[in-house]
Structure formats: C-alpha cells, structure tokens
Nucleic acid binder design. Structure first.
Lengths: 258, 258
DNA sequence: ATTTATATGATTGACTTCGATCATATAAAT
DNA sequence: ATTTATATGATCGAAGTCAATCATATAAAT
C-alpha cells in the first residue's frame, strides 16, 4: 500500500540514525527494529546508499557518519613501513613524565600508534592533530591535551592564530615534528599556518626532533620551516650517503637512521 | 602448512589496518588483497573479532577503529524529540556573523545537528565538544573552533585549566549551555571542571542561554552552576505550570517553551 | 468519487556465504 | 633427524541473502 512520503522519509532517517549509532546492522536487525519486511528494508537501504548516507554490505549496511579523516588515512598508507620504523626509533627518546608535543603530520601519527600499544608512562602528550588525539585518549598513563584553534577536518588538524597562543601554554620536553621536504638548507612544509604553529612550539621545547621519511628528500614545499642548526635530531630511513649527496650533513649525535 | 606466527600476526595487522582505512570490506576483497583463501580470511577475521579489533558481518567485516563517542551517542537518544524541538527554537537566536559558543552536553549537540543542515551564515562557532566539532566542521559558512585542554574521549569533551584559559581567547555573542538539573535556586551540573569552563564562557558572552529538557526538572546534580538571575534565557519543553510548580518563575522574555 | 501512482509484503529461484571436515605442508619441539 | 603441532586451502551441505515479480492497499491527483 502506498504510504505518505513523510512516513517513508522519517523511517529512513531513523535507519540512518540507527546506523550512525551502531555502525553496522544486519538486514534482519533493521527489519526487527522498525517492524518492516525484508523487501522494504532493502529498498530503504538502497535509497540511503544512493543518497550517500550509508554503505550497503552483503547482509546489512554500515553507517557513513564516521568516515572522516579519509584523505589523512590515505596519506598514512604511503611509506607506511618506513614511518613505522622511524616511529619506533623515536620511542627511545621518550621518557616517563615527559611533556611531549606531537605534530600534525602522518609520520608523527605513527609515533602515536606505537605509543598507544606501549611505551614509557606516565606521559603528557600535547597535539594539534585530532587523529593522534583519538589514538592516545583514554589510555592509562597518558594525559592527552589538544591545542585551541580552527578545526580543519580534512587534515584532522587544528590551526590558526589561537593555536599558536594556546601552544605557548605548555612547556615541552620533547617536540616531534614532520616535514614535507628536506633540502641542504633545511626543512620545509606546505602550509604557512602549519609552519607558524610548529615554530611556536619549537620555541618552547627543550628538544626539537624531526621525523622525515626518505621520500621527502629532494621533494619541494613552499614554506621554509627551520634550518638544520635549529634542530636537535633528525630521524629518517634515508642513508647517510644519500643525505650527504643531497647536501645534508649532520653531526653524528643529531642523526638517527633506521 | 604451518607458518611462522609472525607471518600470521603481520597479515592480521594488515587486515585490521585495511579495515581501519575502508571501514567495510567484503570477504572476497580481503582474500584478493592479501592473496589468501576464503578459509584463511575467515579465520583471520574471527581471530581479529575475538581481539576486539574488528566486527564481523555477514559477508565481510567492519573496522572498530572509529567507534568512539559511543556513550555520548547513547545519551543523545534520550528525550531526543524534546531536544530536537528545543534546538530548533534555539536556532532563532542565532544571527549571521555571530560568534556562538556551544556547550558540551547532548541537548546542545542537537543545535549542532540543526545548524549542520541549514541556518544563518556566516557563523563562527566555538566549542569544547568534539562531536559538535565533527558535525559542524567543513561546512560552508561556518568557521569551527575548539578550545584547548585535556581531551576526555568518553564525553567527547575538552576540559581542564587550559580550557578556561583558551575560552577567554574569544568574545561570544551568544553562548548555548546545557545543564543536568534545574531547581528553584538555579542550574546545576555534575562535574566541577565542566562548570568551571561554563562559568568562564558565561563571563565573556553577551547573551547566556540555557537549553534544558523537562527530564532535568527536579533532577539533582552536585555542582551549582548559575542562578536564574545570571542567565538571559531558558529554553525548555517543560510547561510554565510545571516550572512554577517547581518554584521556577522567570520573566516572559526570558522563557521560551516549546 | 474515480482514477492513477506507488509503497509494501510475500514468494521464488539463483547466488553467496558459512562452518565443518579433511589432507597436506611446514614451523617448532624433541 | 624425527616427531608434534598447527596454519592453510579445498570441498560440500546447510543456511542466508538477493533481485525480480506480483497482488494489494492506500495516498495523491483528477
């Protein structure tokens, strides 16, 4: 029997809501909860998928509500192995009771990943990256703080003038940064606001460490960040040979290759 | 054939990673991507589910990586209808170019929901609630800012001394708050640090508005927040009769019932 | 009031997935 | 070197899911 359009819409909204809450629901569950037949449930799910509200699966559907950070995640996959190795080396720098700043990039996110599964405790972690925040929140022994500022969902990062102001509220023992490019002159990044925050943090940290995988060698990025003399350590999977060939020569204690 | 345990573990980690990226993958896709048989894929998925890394579905699996804010979502469902009505009434208070503060509770989240689908633009929104932040980020005409501070994932909220400091970085035209209880004396909340932030914001806003559904009438909460004379408006679904019966009497222009 | 359009639920056959079982290959233990 | 343990892939019957089709009831249009 035909039914008022509003009734249909309300029901589909309810299904979308249900899926936002439960992430996944089998078809039978949808039928049971709404008291509708398989056929109607199927039709509703198909319609909702057409409107990009959910994703159908064989036997049910998943909600799209939480599909954020997608572009960030894609970048996470690049050079994932090198990033993981660098991150594990970086763990050695972190000691219990430190206040550690974790930068917004994907390489530094690997450190958060490593920290989540174990490492020195207790720790105070400060970050402007919300994926890092998610990863490390509610972990025993880690107090997680975020900076203030404008939230940019695509990059999962908090930026802006207020971010710099709030970055000054802490004193860091160690700051772990990423960068988009490294050349003989130093380290570069793509966004001016990102660099602004990084420089602000660099001024109030005891130790400044950069984690940069080899793919960033010879890459180019428009905004100059810091020169080699400004940093305490570079951790990379690029070999000393390749680095010096690119004109990057650092004292032994400032370079960790892995 | 038996295979080194590390190989198995690495493969399962890879599947979990893949699911974190794609949220949902059908079994056949897992087989294809890893070059393994259905049987092995099934066994891997079962093992991963046992470790609470993923959730199995009929025909595939979904990643658990993003299942956050769950307890907050549950509270969202309570009195959902009243919250929605109150939120829609609150929309009228918001005018283009305002700087609006949105509090951490579930009632205020309904305002974010309403704002997301339409309303006055442009707006500057400031919040300490990350689910509100998610909801309103990347929306044309809305600049979304978050406060600094310690991130408490269960409540999806940012709190602490630094939160108060960063709350003072803005001047608000309008602040929308929730509360856990209302009595003749005024409004109450459960957590001292939540109240601390709310009071800080209340001091730097032109207009202080509370959105409280009827279920909070007669409820009790330990921390006193503000008395009725301190606020500019109360929006509630409780009737004037019921309110006055509870000893709450407000001037007409300060009370919106819906 | 009559007609038209369509939302729903039931049915059916084709297709897919599942769990159990088994043979086999290889890592780990002895 | 030999034995033991187990990870893997193949197979198969059972159970579940899907898309298509159809009759029907009711909203919307006339």
């Amino acid at each position: 029997m035909k039914v008022a359009y509003e009734v249909v819409k309300a029901r589909r909204d309810q299904i979308a809501q249900l899926l936002a809450e439960h992430q996944y629901l089998p078809l039978a569950e949808v039928c049971a909860r709404l008291g509708i037949s398989e056929a109607t449930a199927r039709r509703d799910l198909t319609a909702l998928e057409r409107d990009h509200a959910i994703t159908r699966t064989y036997g049910g559907a998943v909600g799209d509500y939480n599909r954020r950070f997608d572009s960030f995640r894609e970048r996470l996959a690049q050079s994932a192995d090198a990033k993981r190795r660098i991150a594990h080396a970086a763990l050695d720098l972190i000691k219990p009771r430190m206040v550690v700043y974790l930068d917004g990039g994907t390489t530094v996110h690997a450190v958060a990943d490593a920290l989540a599964t174990g490492g020195p405790r207790p720790l105070t972690v400060v970050t402007n990256n919300l994926m890092v925040a998610e990863r490390l929140s509610d972990i025993e022994g880690i107090e997680l703080n975020v900076l203030a500022g404008q939230y940019l969902r695509r990059q999962a990062v908090i930026l802006g003038a207020k971010t710099q102001t709030s970055a000054k509220l802490w004193r860091y023992d160690l700051a772990l940064f990423g960068a988009e490019a490294m050349t003989a002159r130093g380290l570069w990044n793509t966004q001016a606001d990102v660099v602004a925050v990084e420089r602000t943090v660099a001024k109030s940290t005891k130790s400044t460490v950069f984690l940069v995988d080899a793919s960033k060698l010879g890459a180019s990025a428009p905004v100059f960040l810091l020169s080699w003399t400004d940093i305490d350590k570079l951790m990379t999977d690029a070999s000393t040979d390749v680095l010096s060939h690119a004109g990057i020569v650092l004292p032994n204690r400032s370079l960790v290759t892995c």
